[in-house]
Write a protein that binds this DNA or RNA. Structure first.
Lengths: 345, 345
DNA sequence: TAGCGGAACGTTACGGGTAACTCAACTGTC
DNA sequence: GACAGTTGAGTTACCCGTAACGTTCCGCTA
């Protein structure tokens, strides 16, 4: 039986070199293609590479050069929310096209999960990190500072980011929706969302929304924060709860489109007419909206682009190009047909 | 100015050891907590770890031990499709809970992309790979065999997998739907889907569907394969195309729920009554279905569970527990209300 | 009090590549 | 034919941890 040097049965560069009758260094040069060898040598080495099925060990390369890997850590709260999936898709496609790999971290919207994930990922010498949200635990911040690794904070625009930031101003998007709803004649409005352990983008939207509504003559009669995921069914029963407990609500603002769809279905099921009996507004503009007969009143955010831009900022930083620290990719209010039109008021 | 030994400004174990006045090896023992040191030494070392903000370099650990990393490569066709996002969520949550990290690869349904990604990921010495689909390029198979790394093939059940496999039998799910639709009185049916560069799960469903329909007295009058993504809007215009070019279609089977929703909206927009004028059936049972007033006729697959099981199989293999090579997680036909009910025929 | 065992810690070698250097054999020039 | 320059290839040291082994020293026992 033939003995392998390494415990794993992988072919190493020195085995290739041995087979080709050259030194490790020469084989290395051939594989990196940076010259300093004859055509004959190149051919021999490449032949042996094929023959032995040699796959380079990138760990060793990173290790030898005392540099960083091609990994980029990407933390996302969850993938049940379609918009985050799109953001991740945008990130990974762009990174992948430039030879980088995403190392995923689902943080479940908690800073503790995020901190643990950051610790682990940093220990793998990533090229950079893309984090969702602008709030991080103190220890996470310490580690990131210490590791001196590029960081892009996405989603929630941070005008003074720790490094780079891209997203939208969630407060403003809530504010604009608040003004819009009041402008369409609604006065007594409600909110249905979910609660998490930290200040986040959704609560920034709610803050903006309340400020706008109350500043323009309306009132937010009830804010319902469910202890559940921000998806379809909680939107359904949250609406039931809200309308059951508070009289006279004319319009409901939801944390996101999925919940708004849930609410819409509840209204349909109960025979309430939207938007005359009740107005419905969401956030995020889900793809499914494109084919619905009623256009949901919402806020469009270019999620895929958000991911792409985040990746581009990271790539620019990694190739030492100048990067603006902060990019607002903007949002667009979609009037839709689930709140009353301007004429009907 | 103080000089650092390493080019990156990261703190290494020897710096900790130096600061604590012990050898590297002792510091290593303390950090791994496997004994062989006094309490006083432990305290000193840990103090310096905190003070210097030391983060272990896992690359070096893997390298030193000649073992694999904690990475698990996960290849997914795309995340625009909600069901794949759910699968990924199931995988990553489970892996994460056991100290592993997912390295993402979006293959865009092409074997060439997959092959390139596999090559890259293998060079990082992953603990294992989870691949979507049962078809891979020849070179990909060679590399995988060579690397001798655990592989779970998901999605499309493979009764003779290269290593392990979990998913459902797509042919059967199509077959069952075909029989169901004919049993509800439809005879002339159509199909709307998209085409990819390879045999895949969707075409297995279509095969099963055709066989069932034709075997029970119906006929598949037209199979429309769009060159587009399998999402809502292609479902919409694909339906328009299908019905415009082929007369007398009574029921349409779609590649997935997203396309079926698109079709449903087209029918609504044209004033066609579903299911009396036309039947509609999808595949996948999207979460949004839970709150729709009409339940879409579809096939339910436990996507999140699929991901979890895949991760569990991988974890079992990694801890040398026995694993069955092949797991069918099953599907369930959802009669819904977008095909005629049994009584109305 | 020699002898022994074990706790606590140090030393060395190694893993798979690469940077930086060295060296030998040609090539061309005058 | 002497010498500088170029080309092709080898040597050595190093990256950061860990396995394996070696060393010191203390306490206990016969």
């Amino acid at each position: 039986m033939s003995e392998k040097k390494s415990k794993t049965n992988k072919v190493s560069l020195s085995e290739v070199a041995l087979a080709a009758g050259v030194s490790k260094m020469t084989a290395s040069r051939v594989l990196r293609g940076e010259g300093g060898y004859s055509e004959r040598t190149r051919a021999t080495v490449m032949e042996k590479v094929d023959e032995l099925g040699y796959l380079p060990n990138r760990l060793a390369t990173v290790f030898a050069g005392d540099k960083t890997s091609t990994f980029v850590g990407v933390s996302i709260p969850d993938l049940g929310n379609e918009v985050f999936a799109q953001v991740l898709e945008g990130i990974d496609r762009k990174l992948g096209a430039f030879g980088h790999q995403s190392v995923l971290g689902l943080t479940q919207h908690t800073l503790r999960e995020e901190e643990n994930w950051i610790r682990t990922v940093l220990s793998w010498q990533p090229a950079g990190l893309i984090l969702t949200g602008r709030y991080h635990s103190k220890r996470a911040l310490d580690m990131l500072r210490n590791a001196n690794v590029p960081v892009v904070e996405i989603w929630d625009l941070n005008s003074s980011p720790m490094d780079m930031s891209v997203g939208i101003n969630h407060f403003d998007s809530g504010f604009e929706m608040g003004r819009f709803i009041v402008s369409r004649g609604y006065r007594k409005v409600g909110y249905v969302g979910t609660s998490h352990d930290t200040a986040n983008a959704a609560s920034a939207r709610l803050d903006g929304f309340c400020k706008a509504v109350e500043g323009s003559g309306g009132s937010v009669a009830r804010q319902l924060c469910l202890h559940d995921t921000a998806t379809y069914y909680p939107g359904y029963y949250g609406t039931e709860q809200l309308l059951g407990s508070t009289r006279g609500i004319e319009c409901i603002y939801y944390q996101n489109d999925a919940m708004a769809f849930g609410g819409l279905q509840f209204c349909d099921a109960k025979g309430m007419r939207v938007p005359d009996d009740i107005g419905v507004a969401g956030w995020g503009d889900l793809p499914v909206a494109a084919v619905m007969r009623r256009r949901l009143t919402s806020v469009h955010v270019p999620h895929l682009k958000l991911g792409q831009v985040a990746a581009e900022m990271m790539l620019a930083r990694l190739s030492d190009e100048p990067v603006e620290a902060c990019r607002d990719i903007g949002f667009r209010l979609i009037p839709g047909s689930t709140v009353k039109s301007a004429e009907t008021r």
